[in-house]
Design a protein around this nucleic acid. Structure first.
Lengths: 300, 300
DNA sequence: TTTAATTATCAACAAATCGTTGTTAATGGT
DNA sequence: ACCATTAACAACGATTTGTTGATAATTAAA
């Protein structure tokens, strides 16, 4: 038995004054209305209406109940309306986790463009290079750079991310320019903390013999810092183009070993579920689609 | 879909923190709870919970909705509790319609006895010799004297009511004592307005030739008045024993034609419906059962 | 008074839904 | 790496729902 339907039926009978009129109002048959009210009475164990074939009279209990039910139904409608509005209005807070360097260099512009399109959405942008647990930490979307792993999360591809080896001309002048990745093991490498050895040949060379302290002048969890170190001539950095390309264009860095670049990665928007996605999230995903162009702005 | 059940399921999941715990609380299976919540989400078109196999997280909408639903469910419980209480507590107002003379002479005592047994019931006793429309005029019970007619109403027999012909000794001395009903047409008759010719032989004699003005000194809708008129020697009255018997016992009246008394009638409690009878009504009906004894107090 | 129309209820049946069972995939703790 | 727990999914039988037709009761009209 659907108690809410029963209540609606009862309420309609009370306000319309007859079963037939109530049925019309609710677009159903009088028989069904009669059944509903009878069910409600059975459930409550109370007679709500004294009815002859011609007239309807509320019992004492029925009067009280009718008043309460009317209020209740209005409340339910109000609540559901609010929920519906929240869902369709494309509003609310959108919590995004993003990698630090990418966010600083390219995301801030995108977010502000997004907000001019959707002023009702408040963005809470948390910069963090960790792999956050978006469910547990309450994020709607996490932007991640890398390859997508199997998980219950969905990842939407936003833009390709290419890694290149960079070094300052001064460094190359002093230590020579490696012609093949296997020479990397002999160079001073600027390592990004969260980078992973994905098992590819090129990454094997990159991480080779890192225990030799002299070859490892710097480790950081921030790419910009590493790029600056490279610019200062402290070593070779393996960094995404969106971080280092500008310095390269300015002549402060040179990209090397371009024929042996690691497999290209992607910028992904990772989110939690597949159906009944809140509008604000849908909107952000759609907005991000193609925003950076292909090839992306930082590569052209 | 039973929205209330769904709400309860959702609310339980929120408060218990897991589907399994919620299922236990509601004495059902976790599968069912899962189904309910999914249905609710489909109905609302909104994701309420972000769930992994291990943790539950409310969405933004879900938080709001959960708070509202919790309140709502409490309200529903409160309302239904009140309704239940009204039904089981044997309380409330009991509106009774009763014949004037009978109420004055015998009902007042019964009502006060009833109220000592059921102090929570407020009695609203309306005296009226009309046949009230109990539904339309909002009565719970109508006490009626007479024969029960076919109707959708139920009548419960409370006590037998006998009619007798009464006259004052002085009247009989002056006009003679009728030995057979057919002689009534020659006597001065004190007529009760609401009395009906039920088609019986004896009532035929009683109503015969009433157009002769001299034979009709008085018509009243009140039996006591007619009895007093009879005591004063103004004529013959056909009245129930419960009104006239006392005057008879005191010698002020004599009952005549006892072998030809009209068919005995009854005092009935008439009420509206058969199932889900409010407690207060049930209580009154049970209380009235046998209250006046058999033969009733006014006849013994 | 009789007839017709309206109204609520009852009965029965087909269709839809519900709640169960068994299974799978994912996750966190040991 | 394994195991226990958890949520989701699929499928099936049982129950409930909503429909249709019929019945009884009451009022208005003829």
């Amino acid at each position: 038995m659907d108690r809410i339907k029963s209540m609606q039926a009862f309420s309609a009978v009370v306000s319309e004054g007859s079963f037939a009129a109530a049925a019309e109002k609710l677009n159903t048959s009088s028989q069904l209305v009669s059944k509903y009210v009878a069910q409600l009475e059975d459930y409550l164990g109370v007679r709500l209406l004294n009815r002859t074939t011609r007239k309807i009279n509320l019992t004492e209990v029925g009067q009280q109940y009718a008043a309460n039910v009317k209020q209740l139904l209005e409340q339910i409608a109000e609540i559901e309306h609010r929920v519906g509005a929240m869902h369709t209005e494309t509003s609310g807070q959108l919590r995004i986790s993003a990698p630090v360097s990418f966010a600083i260099s390219h995301l801030s512009g995108m977010i502000s463009d997004f907000q001019t399109d959707y002023p009702q959405v408040t963005v809470d942008l948390q910069l963090n290079d960790r792999k956050v647990d978006i469910l547990h930490e309450g994020f709607d979307i996490a932007l991640r750079i890398g390859h997508l792993k199997n998980s219950s999360l969905i990842g939407k591809f936003i833009a390709p991310v290419h890694l290149k080896f960079y070094a300052a001309p001064s460094y190359l002048k002093e230590f020579g320019t490696p012609q093949h990745p296997k020479e990397l093991a002999e160079h001073r490498r600027l390592i990004y903390s969260y980078s992973e050895n994905d098992g590819s040949e090129i990454m094997g060379y990159w991480f080779k013999n890192l225990d030799t302290q002299s070859k490892l002048p710097m480790v950081s969890n921030n790419g910009d810092v590493l790029v600056q170190a490279a610019v200062a001539g402290h070593g070779i950095a393996l960094q995404p183009t969106f971080i280092a390309q500008q310095a390269c264009n300015e002549g402060k860095l040179v990209s090397i070993l371009n024929e042996h670049a690691p497999p290209s990665m992607g910028l992904y928007a990772v989110y939690a579920h597949r159906k009944l996605l809140p509008r604000k999230i849908r909107a952000f995903l759609d907005f991000s689609e193609g925003y950076f162009g292909n090839p992306p702005v930082w590569d052209s």
